[in-house]
Amino acid sequence: MESSDIRIKQHPILDFPERRKVKFYWEGKQLEGYEGEPIASALHAAGVKVLHKSLKRGRPRGFFCAIGNCSSCLVVVDGVPNVRACTEKLRAGMRVEMQVGVGPVPRSKE
């Protein structure tokens, strides 16, 4: 799907007004999304489906429930692991990484 097609513009019932676009990083690459939307929806709209690698077999994982129930979509946000991409809101400059297994222990920079 063309990335221009993935966001719904015309809908018979709903309106999706333009919101403020912000830049964020996925695996070091700069992407754009709407401020305040969940990370998972910004990534999906940017064509990213694999958010997590499973603990034992390293199998790719995406979101499944999209409302914070299932924890299939855990990512690392600004060094903090186990963040649910489907509920965490997108902020400008956020650095989001794919989480492998349980993810890294968050460490302060000093």
Binding site: F64, A66, I67
Partner: peptide, 25 residues
């Protein structure tokens, strides 16, 4: 069944009707 792209129906509804993002083609 664990592949990304296998979504709950409710998740698809959230993605398209709340977020305005199509789940796929």
């Amino acid at each position: 069944n664990d592949l990304p792209g296998v979504y709950g129906a409710g998740a698809v509804q959230t993605l398209m009707n709340v977020r305005g993002v199509r789940p796929g083609k």
